[in-house]
């Protein structure tokens, strides 16, 4: 009981962070807009700056309203779903492993090629999400990445990097 209410209070404080993020982004958009040179071809009050200024202003105003709403007890409701269990805390370890697999793919896709980096991405993500069948996962990952490579390159005519497997595939 008490842990639930302290959880709600914790969300209240962190939700103020969302307002802060929106406000900060708004200020950034406004400053960037003011740094633009006024265009010579624009007529009247609307140039390249105007819309960014309005959007930045909207962000700042919304941030203020959101902060007021949170302070008055309004709460954003976390999104539910069939696979989502909202009773526990966020599982940051899983997230960190997923992000690592994702970034590995982004960094390796050009040097090693999609058939290798895509397999790393799938295998790493499945491992992060709790699959403990390393060999089966590896087979699925390789079949998926090589299969999609052939699908894109041969059937769809979209180039994907082949990397170290050049000449083999």
């Amino acid at each position: 009981m008490s842990s639930a209410s302290s959880g709600a209070r914790e969300q209240g404080r962190s939700e103020l962070g969302v307002a802060l993020f929106l406000g900060g982004l708004g200020v950034l958009v406004i400053v960037q807009a003011l740094l633009l040179e006024e265009s010579l071809i624009a007529r009247g009050p609307v140039g390249p700056r105007t819309v960014p200024l309005v959007v930045g202003g909207l962000l700042v105003v919304v941030a203020a309203f959101l902060a007021v709403d949170v302070l008055r007890g309004g709460r954003g409701e976390p999104e539910g779903g069939e696979d989502v269990d909202l009773t526990g805390r966020s599982d940051w370890r899983t997230i960190a492993m997923l992000v690592a697999a994702f970034v590995a793919n982004a960094l390796l896709i050009e040097p090693l090629g999609w058939p290798v980096s895509g397999a790393i991405l799938f295998w790493g993500s499945a491992f992060a999400l709790g699959s403990r069948h390393p060999v089966r996962d590896l087979v699925i990952a390789v079949v998926l990445s090589v299969g999609t490579w052939y699908l894109f390159v041969l059937v769809l005519g979209i180039a994907l990097p082949v990397g170290v497997l050049e000449g083999i595939l």
Binding site: G118, L121, S125, A126, L129, T148, L160
Partner: peptide
């Protein structure tokens, strides 16, 4: 299995986003 489902979503999301402009 959920581990394959969400790994697959990340896999295909990366594939699609890369294929759009071929840019890491």
């Amino acid at each position: 299995p959920r581990s394959y489902l969400y790994a697959g979503i990340l896999f295909f999301a990366s594939l699609g986003a890369y294929a759009a402009n071929a840019s890491p």
